[in-house]
Design a protein around this nucleic acid. Sequence first.
DNA 1: GTGGGGTTTGACATCATGTCAAGGTCAAGA
DNA 2: TCTTGACCTTGACATGATGTCAAACCCCAC
Lengths: 128, 128
Amino acid sequence: MNIGQASEASGVSQRMIRHYEKIGLIPEAPRRDSGYRDYSPADLNRLRFIANARDLGFPIEEIRMLLDLWNDRSRASAEVKALAMARAGELQRKSVALEAMRRTLIDLAERCHGDTRPDCPIIERLAQ
Amino acid sequence: MNIGQASEASGVSQRMIRHYEKIGLIPEAPRRDSGYRDYSPADLNRLRFIANARDLGFPIEEIRMLLDLWNDRSRASAEVKALAMARAGELQRKSVALEAMRRTLIDLAERCHGDTRPDCPIIERLAQ
DNA sequence: GTGGGGTTTGACATCATGTCAAGGTCAAGA
DNA sequence: TCTTGACCTTGACATGATGTCAAACCCCAC
């Protein structure tokens, strides 16, 4: 299977497939005589796994660990769970930070007339 | 005032002060004979404004607009308010996305034994 | 005048991804 | 068989906001 088809089937862009290969997240694809990369169904599964992990907010290095755990038949689910919980905590931390910013902006905006006059608590706050 | 003192007083790193100058977010600082940048109190206020806007999640290009509005005495507060509300919407969008990921992870983790056994709904979901 | 600390520029790195360019390859139709 | 368009290759440059490092220069106090 060509990289284009692998990309299509896995939802990972060609660019990222090559990138993942370069950083060793996926093994180097065998090449045909033409130099084209050739992918197997197993490669597709690996790519889909990566795409799913990315969609859940895992950074590359944690995906690397998850892939190792996936391939480790004697893995302890505790390890996977710990990674997931740590990731959930990090996501929450970020989410809370964003929400705090949003809340501040909303509060300031509510106190802003929002008309043609120049006075504005938002600007005042920024200039503070 | 040296860049180090300006950095200290504004909370913006020296690195970022130089960067903001390069991208035109702040005017080029006048130089002393030595070539050292020389900052005025007005420059400090501008740097603090930028730091505050960053803390509220505004990207550089919007900070540029906010700086223009700040310096425009005939500005309409409606413009500032619109920027703030748009930013708030964007922050919420991101926050909601993070929260959805977190929720999914938590749900999966709750269904994972988290012991020495290998079976794990988190891995199953990723491999799906 | 010497030493230690501040400043200068430039380069390289992050992280995950997009885009572009120049060139080689494949497959289908004329 | 030749052509054409779609595909693939690598490499480079870009994003956004920031850190770090290095080599060279400057400043001040002793």
